[in-house]
Design a protein around this nucleic acid. Structure first.
Length: 593
RNA sequence: GGCGCGGUAGCUCAAUUGGUUAGAGCCCCGGACUGUCGAUCCGGAGGUUGCGGGUUCGAGUCCCGUCCGCGUCGCCA
């Protein structure tokens, strides 16, 4: 090592020690006769003094000219700072290093921004110069936290006898589900590999192979549009176990949550984590990943709506729809007509709601609203009682299909909680949502889709309904929810051919198609497949949530933009004609010669 | 693909209803300075207002198109 110490470790007890430090020039205060440099590495900041009597005139001159963010090496003596010159903002603030040797290892050209500047530059610039952005302390913290979380996870599974197995990145396309990233084959003209959306099929085959307990930190790829919490390539902690039921997997992950929260954040999490069925989650919160850090639960007032003469309510209720609402406590005075109009636009534009009905609970307990005149007093009273409305509360309702009321009210709930500051940013709220439906109905395609994937096992008790009522059939599935985000999901898999072919049948996958797409898995399942199941945890999201951030790019070293581009490397990019020819490809436009 | 927000100096931002030579702080360059830690003081450079078109006597500002970044819905088995 060129250095003897890092820039974060020298203290009063080191005074008198001869040291060599390496690092980046974070800032410089040049007094002509003496130069103060804050020297930075990922461990911290140490003040370096280049001045007499230790340093000579040439060194002082060179230090005065070194551009910020250059890399330097200095040798010197650890010294107490002068009386009254201690910097208590720095852990190394009691000492400084007086330089006897000053050497520029590499100059930095003028950077477009500096890691220490208080105004954060635009994200496009940060991404283009990611090597500078990653020098910022918050990015360094995120990356270190990420490393700690992954280590903690790996340790946990190792102590539970899991084996880490790597699965291929070049696989075959399974057009079910997300869009694949395709890789053309040079050796097999017109054929393509696909990058894995998850190692799902491989890990099931590892169970057939007897590996019993498998774990992998797996990169996954999905060619779908991005979000604040979604990247086209992301990392899953992928787990599969043999001879288990849902409880075993959920219990195992409970232990993981406790360990990681304790080790990384010093937080105590109580287990078992709360469980809620999918049905309950949708009924009470309108979401399969409910944010339980605040209340504002959804209440169904369809039965009241049915009795009214108000066309919007009555009509919806009579035609099989739902009238459901939330009580935004003590918000009546905080939301103007104009702001409520904005919320109305929000539920219309984002969730396809037809409108937003709202009531203010007045001092005397009556409900005031532009629509109250359409409703009888007794019905208004019933509505208020249903939502436990108190004076000052704001009641909001959607009258629509089940789906729209769920999505709209869930969206409203989260938006309002944010605006009203109802969320404790330090809270880590973990829970399970279980018993997802096996299928959901696709009205456009007029067919059933697998809610998770086609190898998900139904609940034993729902096996009957597989034949006569697919909608009612629930799966042995479980999602881990942290602070209203899906942080992981898994299922127990089907291991008997009979159930599997029934499920394929329902999904409209005939024998030949099944054979073509998943033949290798189905084949493997015939050779002594143990009952098995597992889970995949979203590592990026875990880190984001544990770091208290709301954007996944902040915990990924080299993330992609919304258009799935890497602004630093400028990927994706055009390729030479020769490369295409070799791959038996021709582009339709924009070809580079 | 839809909806919304944004793009002005290297960076962060300002610029009245369309109106004089588009400003400030930081950075950068030159000079002064031995105790600073947002160093200070003096001086200076730096702009095709993302790009293209249109309206107008006149456009950073209005209109159309386009590119890029962000949020969100669809999508993500």
């Amino acid at each position: 090592m060129l250095r003897t110490h890092t820039c974060g470790e020298l203290r009063k007890t080191d005074v008198g020690t001869e040291v060599t430090l390496c690092g980046w020039v974070e800032s410089k205060r040049d007094h002509g006769g003496a130069v103060f440099i804050d020297l930075r590495d990922r461990y911290g900041l140490t003040q370096v003094v280049v001045g007499p009597p230790e340093s000579n005139a040439d060194q002082i001159d060179e230090a005065g000219r070194v551009p910020s963010e250059s890399v330097i090496l200095i040798k010197g003596t650890v010294t107490n700072r002068l009386e009254g010159k201690v910097n208590d903002k720095l852990s190394t603030g009691e000492i400084e290093v007086r330089t006897v040797h000053f050497e520029v290892l590499n100059v930095c050209q003028t950077p477009p921004f500096t890691p220490s500047q208080s105004d954060l530059p635009g994200e496009d610039l940060r991404l283009k110069y990611r090597f500078l952005d990653l020098r910022r302390s918050s990015m360094q913290r995120s990356m270190i936290l990420r490393s700690q979380i992954v280590k903690s996870m790996r340790d946990y599974f190792e102590t539970h006898d899991f084996i880490d197995v790597e699965t291929p990145i070049l696989g075959r396309s399974t057009p079910e589900g997300a869009r694949d990233y395709l890789v053309p084959s040079r050796v097999h003209p017109t054929n393509f590999y696909a990058l894995p959306q998850s190692p799902q099929l491989y890990k099931q085959i590892l169970m057939v192979a007897g590996f019993d307990r498998y774990v992998q930190v797996a990169r996954c790829f999905r060619d779908e549009d991005l979000r604040a919490d979604r990247q086209p390539e992301f990392t899953q902690l992928d787990v599969e176990m043999s001879f288990v039921d849902s409880e075993d997997v959920v219990g195992l992950i409970d232990g993981l949550v406790v360990k990681v929260a304790k080790e990384v954040l010093g937080k105590e999490i109580k287990t078992p984590l709360p469980r809620m069925t999918y049905e309950e989650a949708m009924r009470r919160f309108g979401s399969d990943a409910p944010d339980l850090r605040f209340g504002m639960e959804i209440v169904d007032v369809t039965s009241v709506a049915k009795k009214t003469e108000f066309r919007v309510f009555r009509g919806t209720a009579d035609s099989g729809g739902f009238v459901r609402g939330i009580n935004v406590q003590q918000a009546a005075s905080k939301y103007s007509r104009r702001q409520i109009d904005e919320l109305t636009e929000y539920v219309k534009a984002d969730f396809g709601a037809k409108g937003l009905a709202w009531f203010r609970v007045e001092e005397d307990g009556t409900l005031w609203s532009p629509i109250s005149k359409n409703l009888e007093e007794s019905h208004l009273a019933e509505i208020r009682e249903s939502l436990s409305g108190q004076p000052g509360d704001l009641l909001m309702f959607l009258a629509d299909t089940w789906e729209v009321t769920c999505k709209g009210l869930s969206g409203l709930r989260c938006r309002l909680a944010g605006e009203l500051d109802l969320i404790d940013p330090k809270e880590l709220n973990c829970s399970w949502v279980t018993e997802f439906p096996m299928f959901d109905w696709d009205p456009d395609g007029q067919r059933w889709n697998a809610m998770h994937h086609p190898f998900t096992a139904p609940l034993e008790s729902d096996l009957e309904s597989l034949s006569d009522d697919p909608k009612a059939c629930r799966a042995q599935a479980y999602d881990l929810v942290i602070n209203g985000s899906e942080a992981g999901g898994g299922t127990i898999r089907i291991h008997d051919p009979e159930t599997q072919s029934k499920v394929f049948g329902l999904l409209g996958i005939d024998e030949q198609t099944a054979e073509d797409r998943f033949g290798f898995l189905l084949n493997a399942l015939k050779y002594g497949a143990p009952p098995h199941g597992g889970i995949a945890l979203g590592v990026d999201r875990w880190v984001m949530l544990l770091a208290g951030l709301d954007n996944i790019r902040e915990v990924i070293a080299f993330p992609k933009t919304q258009k799935a581009a890497d602004l630093m490397t400028e990927a994706p990019g055009a390729v030479d004609k020769e490369q295409l020819t070799e791959l038996h490809l021709r582009t339709l436009k924009g070809q580079k010669d």
